[in-house]
Computed example of a mutant assay.
Amino acid sequence: MGLPAIGSYPMPDRAALPRSCASWAIDPGRAALLVHDMQNHFVGELPTDRSPVVELVENITALRALATALGIPVVFTAEPAAQPPGQRGLAADVWGPGIGDSADAAAIIPPLTPRPGERVLANVRQNAFLRSHLGRLLRSEGRDQLIVCGVHAHLGVLLTAADAFMNDIQPFVVADAVADLSAEEHAMALRWAARSAVVCTTETLLRELLLGGGSRDVRKDA
Results as ranks from 00 to 15, higher is better:
residue 116 P to R: 06
residue 77 T to Q: 01
residue 108 I to R: 08
residue 136 R to E: 12
residue 132 S to W: 08
residue 96 G to H: 07
residue 101 D to H: 13
residue 95 W to P: 11
residue 78 A to Q: 05
residue 109 I to V: 15
residue 119 R to L: 13
residue 93 D to R: 14
residue 63 L to M: 00
residue 106 A to F: 01
residue 127 N to V: 12
residue 75 V to I: 15
residue 123 N to Q: 15
residue 91 A to H: 14
residue 67 A to Q: 01
residue 107 A to P: 01
residue 86 G to Y: 06
residue 37 D to S: 03
residue 67 A to W: 00
residue 82 A to W: 07
residue 115 R to P: 07
residue 113 T to Q: 13
residue 114 P to T: 07
residue 91 A to Y: 15
residue 59 N to M: 01
residue 79 E to Y: 05
residue 60 I to Q: 00
residue 114 P to Y: 07
residue 74 V to F: 00
residue 99 I to W: 01
residue 39 Q to H: 02
residue 133 H to I: 13
residue 105 A to H: 09
residue 122 A to N: 15
residue 121 L to G: 05
residue 119 R to P: 03
residue 123 N to W: 04
residue 100 G to T: 04
residue 36 H to R: 06
residue 67 A to Y: 03
residue 139 R to K: 14
residue 38 M to L: 15
residue 125 R to W: 13
residue 124 V to Y: 08
residue 66 L to E: 03
residue 90 L to A: 15
residue 131 R to G: 09
residue 84 P to W: 08
residue 128 A to D: 01
residue 41 H to L: 04
residue 128 A to M: 05
residue 41 H to Q: 08
residue 38 M to W: 05
residue 122 A to L: 10
residue 83 Q to Y: 07
residue 67 A to I: 00
residue 68 T to I: 09
residue 133 H to Q: 11
residue 130 L to T: 15
residue 119 R to Q: 10
residue 79 E to T: 13
residue 94 V to W: 13
residue 67 A to M: 06
residue 98 G to H: 07
residue 57 V to L: 13
residue 63 L to H: 02
residue 92 A to C: 11
residue 102 S to V: 04
residue 64 R to M: 00
residue 37 D to I: 04
residue 119 R to C: 10
residue 77 T to I: 06
residue 86 G to P: 04
residue 138 L to T: 03
residue 82 A to H: 08
residue 85 P to T: 04
residue 79 E to L: 09
residue 140 S to A: 10
residue 47 P to S: 08
residue 108 I to P: 07
residue 43 V to N: 03
residue 125 R to L: 14
residue 74 V to S: 00
